[in-house]
Nucleic acid binder design. Sequence first.
DNA 1: GTTATATTCAATTGTTCCATTGAATGATAG
DNA 2: CTATCATTCAATGGAACAATTGAATATAAC
Lengths: 219, 219
Amino acid sequence: MSSLSPKLALFEQFALVAKTLGHPQRLELIEQLGQGPRSVDLLAEKLGAPIANVSQHLQTMRRAGLVTAARQGKFVVYRLADASVLAAMQAIQRVAENNLAEVDKIVRGYFEQRDNLEPITREELSGRLREGMVTVLDVRPADEYALGHVPGALNVPLGELDARLSTLDPDEDIVAYCRGAYCVMSFEAVSRLRLRGFKARRLEDGMPEWAAAGNEVAS
Amino acid sequence: MSSLSPKLALFEQFALVAKTLGHPQRLELIEQLGQGPRSVDLLAEKLGAPIANVSQHLQTMRRAGLVTAARQGKFVVYRLADASVLAAMQAIQRVAENNLAEVDKIVRGYFEQRDNLEPITREELSGRLREGMVTVLDVRPADEYALGHVPGALNVPLGELDARLSTLDPDEDIVAYCRGAYCVMSFEAVSRLRLRGFKARRLEDGMPEWAAAGNEVAS
DNA sequence: GTTATATTCAATTGTTCCATTGAATGATAG
DNA sequence: CTATCATTCAATGGAACAATTGAATATAAC
């Protein structure tokens, strides 16, 4: 193992990281952990996968340096090792977006149908927040909202959206966001809001990107 | 396949990209292709691997959108699909550097022994190039040099270094570079030059990074 | 045409990875 | 101390991957 040339030994390690990223469920785990630290239990529930399975994936990721684990009471809480993990995942997404026809097809077939208006940029949103001209909806589950959200955003999980429509001002612009560029919840929210006559748009990307871009986060 | 939820379908695609990056030999191929387009045959020779093997890896990479192939005469020339591929590889390297103890060990055990002085930054080098106060050595093989190099750099492949020592000015600072941060050739060159009493330093990273940072490239 | 060269294909093998299951461990609450 | 809950471990079988070999294809040179 360490008798290899140092260059190959390094490439082995890099490959280990990449290989570990090479499983859809693990990418989903990273997406979740990008929202904040999570217990195995909660992660398994979010993914709808067996706990043992998730536990093993998490351990694989721990061995590859993607996440760290810490015991808290009777829970084991995992978190991303550092910001470079999200960066790597985003870099991989970019490669796929640029070069895989399949991705284009999926995005066109699903996402674009649901949002033919441009998403609002982070810059634009933070400007309009200062002017108070906009209602921001965080459509993620309450627990994710609690761990950090756009200042002033209302937490309206998708399931509660219909029930809370009456509390929204139909004359004010609405911006919805969720977990990231490929999180479907904000698309869904925007599409439902428009059906009801609201002026709704999506924020580009979502929460971890908002924070990563240096914007203020409330909690 | 496409009956999956669109989110999972996307993650499948992202995972495909990552999984394809998850093999040391393929990372080495990307490193090579980062220097410029290459034929299968040449790549196989550079890696010291059987041609059929390399060909299959390249096709795997083609399916994942990492590279493209074009026939030129009797050669098939592969090239990186776009700059995002190198970016993804670098992002993965960064994860490994930050979080894998093993990488630290390798880097410490091998690279740092050989270069206890700081590498020179690209900014510093381009400044000193303007003042003409420095000799730049490109220690990559001639074919890689021919495809693009730092303006004014002399091509001195490692094997020819000793023979050409007499042509170098021992009073001028020397900066050596090669393919990238983990390419050993520039370390080797610097270490040999210092043994002979030259004032040699390494450039941070190497050629593709120099170009990627927007610096001028000669050819 | 025929030959030589570059690349890919196809089939084989051994290896690694993945999901699942049920048992084992660690921590807390009563 | 026991019961309970969260997590991990260990073992299984099935699927995907990787290296090798030899044959097949495509282009160029003669």
